[in-house]
Write a protein that binds this DNA or RNA. Structure first.
Lengths: 249, 249
DNA sequence: TCCAGCCATGTTGCATTCAATATACTCGGT
DNA sequence: ACCGAGTATATTGAATGCAACATGGCTGGA
């Protein structure tokens, strides 16, 4: 279940004890924000199984806090679409069915397309060089059939493009959606057949080319299609039963 | 200040009184959701002045509830970007400076571009006909220089395109961003100079044309540029000092 | 044996209360 | 008279307590 979650503070800490040091780098945040980030991580990482009922009380003692800040965090996570809150019946980690997944990938495609368009207007030569470097690094992983390394660098490239768009709102929105499909995206990674992988690699060549030429509209189209193809691959993989697609677990 | 807000329930109601009838059509929702929707409306409508400090206590007695559900709602609104929560210093309605506004319009442009692209794949002839009808209705308002009617129908057209994309996630995201810039968008409406208005009208001709031909990629480009031009008009208007652009009110 | 209604239990929703921090005022010093 | 330290107050942050609702088991009847 959720037994893998480590408590936020030692169980012997009193309610008034300073929480400094509980999470280095986050000490200055409020308890609410701490909980929020922590829960989000757990959900995105998959530590909390989808669909499993996890009573508030249980989460409270796990995190070492009372229900008030936890509930506030849950409300926020629900508004983000990561969990769903059933009245008087608690919170469940949201299960993405095939349809939801398709919609999310489509929006991701739109956001990446936008990012590409804006990036062409704002990206520096140094940033392009960095993406080129990553591209060839990724190509190396492709040649060596290193799926894990490939996908890591792949995501990094997409991230760099979004960052090059110079739009904090876009960056935040992208991150939010990326979190929602992260689990699936990662597992769908392993679905890639040889031909799809090669196709993806060619698409990335086109992405880099359009970026070099700063052809915003074109890059936008390519990225959208690229994400659409990713979606297809992911959905096919999930449909094969490898992960929780439509029905209840 | 916020004196224009009407209380959710009569002040003599006890804490355990049924709230049925407080808001027809929303009776079945939880108090939290009621508050959330109500606060969101007030912020979007501008009933709560931007930047003004509004203590929780005051909001509580206005809405006739305790602080717990109110605070939950505030956290959600903060995560949506409508308000900002300063630690130990309360909530303020978020003030959009010129930069924020530009970023928001860019993302809106990306979302509308995506909507146009998807709409071309999914829209029915009947929906196109409906948009055509709205288009000519809007043209009538343009000819009569009826700014209010024009913008109302204008937004309706954009809304229809987003709906035609057949993507609930996109629809929700679009609605969220639309809410964030709604006040500005509306007031920026009045900024339109004659030439810009005519230009916008021509852009809408192109939008309709691309939609008829179901040219997704082209429509995506047009809509993005259309929003970008809207942004320029809005920013110019705000920069002229008509509304709260960068500094404190 | 099976099903319907009732009750017990656990969980959630909200209100209230306590603790911690920021702001504003006052007082003393320069 | 002006400025800074110290304190008082008000507001937010978090915890606890109580009421309402949902789920599961039990009993009585067909």
């Amino acid at each position: 279940m959720v037994g893998t979650m480590k408590p936020l503070i030692p169980s012997d800490a009193t309610s008034t004890a300073k929480r400094a040091g509980a999470e280095p780098g986050r000490e200055d945040l409020s308890l609410h924000d701490e909980i929020l980030a922590r829960l989000r991580d757990h959900i995105v990482e998959g530590s909390i199984p989808g669909g499993g009922r996890v009573p508030e009380r249980q989460l409270c003692e796990m995190l070492g806090i009372s229900r008030t800040p936890l509930r506030e965090a849950l409300k926020v996570l629900a508004s983000e679409g990561l969990i769903e809150l059933l009245p008087h019946r608690g919170a469940r980690v949201r299960q993405l069915n095939e349809h939801d997944l398709g919609e999310l990938f489509e929006v991701m495609g739109g956001l990446e397309g936008l990012a590409g368009r804006l990036a062409c207007e704002n990206i520096t030569d140094a940033e392009i060089a960095e993406i080129e470097r990553l591209h060839y690094e990724m190509y190396g992983f492709y040649l060596h059939r290193d799926m894990h390394g490939y996908f890591r660098v792949n995501q990094l490239i997409h991230q760099k493009i979004v960052e090059a768009a110079r739009n904090a709102v876009l960056l935040g929105t992208y991150a939010s959606f990326a979190g929602r499909i992260r689990r699936v995206r990662y597992s769908a990674n392993f679905a890639r057949k040889r031909e799809r992988w090669g196709e993806a690699m060619r698409e990335h060549e086109a992405i880099l080319d359009a970026l070099r030429r700063r052809a915003g509209s074109e890059l936008s189209d390519i990225l959208f299609e690229h994400l659409r193809n990713k979606r297809t691959a992911a959905v096919e993989y999930l449909r094969a039963g490898n992960l929780l697609p439509p029905g209840p677990d």
